[in-house]
Design a protein around this nucleic acid. Structure first.
Lengths: 201, 201
DNA sequence: CCGATTCCTTATCTTTTGTTAACGTTTTGA
DNA sequence: TCAAAACGTTAACAAAAGATAAGGAATCGG
């Protein structure tokens, strides 16, 4: 994918939160890089610091933890989603999880260092700050909803809801990742699927 | 509690994220109110818009949803915690949950309208924006950790961890609220407690 | 102060989930 | 192209959790 197209997608995403003049965009774009991540390659690995934040412009990634030697998938980012190991990025401490490309992906990245420099530019400071706030708020709401689903819904309810809201992305992902995402085992998800099939049949 | 003391606690909290000059603080404090919330009274009710955000200066509150006529407790805020139905506050849509005082509480509040006005003051705009970002990031990390615990840990592990990290606040809260918080029933938590007792005995 | 309510535990029974393993299918990668 | 690995389902059994009910202790509110 052409870098200009990728950068433009970043601008579109950014402007959904904070509008930019052409001059501001020009200044901001200097700090961005367009990276390609081959399938199965890592955006972050546990134990290393995630010093950048990115926008998935093409492809998809999954987030996973390793516990007792097992991979447990906790999240995904698809096209037009931000990605980062947020805690690691925000606190510059080692990440607890891996982020791995599920498909060949194109990512527009902003390194921690570049972000700081951008924030020191008079022209950009305020809008960067605002973008940071709005993004954090956006994902805060996502996480809030997710926690609420764990508290108030059974695994079966969570899966049914996911089927309604998940869109086509669901069909690009192995079931056992989805099971992890729901907080259950792949075997259990398979049983839930059969139960739902029988009801709707 | 004296209003000045309460306001001062807010200032201390704010300055943990963003330092303020006396002039800035004076301007900001004009927008704050100090409210008292008697035990069992509501900070927000489901269906109504939560148009303010606050800092618990004294006391404690619990967040809960009502599902099938049952109350399900999802969260708490204690002294020096922010409180709000964030999604409702940020999007000005009706809240999905209740927030109720567990004890007689003192809360320093900032209404949505006042926040907007404060953000329009040249003197405050940038620091308010930054505070908003840092708070959102702070809670984003909290939620991230919580989701991770649901994905990677069993209820028993979650409870054990909570015992380690929860502090004295745990002992001010009824067990069945904690059970909800962990995503299990009170009966199940009671069984887990017995299992843990036997092991450590 | 006392009756009512709330709270925690325990018991019983049912349902769901976890665990392990097997099997056929699909996908992968050399 | 072909063997190996990954995937989804199913089965059988064990472990844990949910539902319901009952009993006693603690707390609350008038």
């Amino acid at each position: 994918m052409d870098s200009l197209i990728a950068l433009n997608k970043f601008r579109q995403y950014f402007e959904k939160f904070v509008p930019l003049t052409d001059g501001e965009w020009h200044a901001l774009s200097q700090y961005l890089t367009v990276d390609h991540l081959k399938k199965k390659k890592f955006y972050v690995e546990a134990g290393k610091i995630c010093d950048q934040i990115g926008l998935v412009v093409k492809g998809a990634v999954r987030y996973y933890h390793v516990k007792d030697g097992e991979e447990i998938t906790g999240y995904f980012s698809f096209e037009n989603d931000m990605l980062s190991s947020y805690k690691s990025f925000l606190t510059l401490t080692p990440a607890a999880n891996y982020i791995q490309a599920l498909e060949d992906s194109v990512i527009v990245n902003l390194s921690h260092k570049n972000l700081q420099q951008a924030c020191q530019e008079e022209l950009l400071a305020f809008k960067m700050e605002r973008f940071g706030r709005l993004i954090a708020e956006h994902y805060l709401i996502c996480y809030d909803d997710r926690v609420t689903s764990f508290i108030t819904q059974s695994p079966e309810e969570r899966y049914s809801k996911l089927l309604e809201t998940g869109g086509e992305a669901l069909y690009r992902i192995p079931q056992h990742y989805i099971a992890n995402f729901l907080g259950i085992t792949p075997v259990s998800l398979s049983r839930i699927r059969r139960r739902i099939m029988k009801i709707s049949a």
